Computed example of a mutant assay.
Amino acid sequence: MKFGAYTPDDESHSRCFVTSTYEFYFKNGYGASVTRGMNSYGGKEGLWELAVLKYRKEVWGYWDICYDTPITNDVIGGLDVAGVEKLLKRIEALPEAKSRKRFRVKRPRLGLNRRD
């Protein structure tokens, strides 16, 4: 399935949930998951749902839903093919994604090297 000029990098289909999912990955570290099925927003009407994805560098090959882009802070449902293509173009034009910071837990020192 193509969405205008965009061909998916990955796709999956579920007969059980009558769902089709197409994923797009861009060089800027963002991507999109485009889904249509019984449980997607607009799926019963034959429309598509889009979620913005972000590549997680600390977990190689893992893409996660991103809720903090200028495009949306949630998924966008009720899209036709032209609407999906428009959003894919905007996602591809986003500035390069920065990796999430990994938080290190500071552990208390045990005092082994302490001079009293």
Results as ranks from 00 to 15, higher is better:
P8C: 09
P8L: 09
P8W: 08
D9K: 11
D9H: 14
D9V: 02
D10F: 11
D10V: 00
D10A: 15
S12A: 12
S12I: 04
S12Q: 12
H13K: 14
H13D: 08
H13Q: 11
S14L: 05
R15M: 08
C16L: 15
C16I: 13
V18F: 06
S20T: 12
T21I: 09
T21F: 00
Y22I: 01
E23S: 13
F24V: 07
F26I: 02
K27C: 01
N28Q: 06
N28R: 06
N28S: 05
G29R: 06
G29F: 09
Y30G: 02
S33A: 14
N39R: 14
Y41M: 13
G42Q: 11
G43H: 03
K44F: 04
K44M: 14
E45R: 14
L50Q: 07
L50F: 10
A51I: 05
V52W: 03
K54I: 06
K57E: 13
K57C: 04
K57F: 05
V59N: 07
G61N: 11
G61W: 05
W63V: 03
W63N: 02
D64Y: 10
D64S: 11
D64A: 10
Y67W: 08
P70E: 14
P70D: 13
I71D: 07
T72L: 07
V75F: 12
V75T: 15
G77I: 12
G78F: 12
G78T: 11
L79D: 00
D80E: 12
D80G: 06
D80C: 04
V81Q: 10
A82W: 04
E85S: 15
K86G: 00
K86W: 00
L88P: 02
L88R: 01
L88K: 01
K89G: 04
K89E: 09
I91V: 10
A93S: 12
L94T: 01
L94V: 03
L94Q: 02
E96V: 06
E96A: 07
A97G: 01
S99R: 00
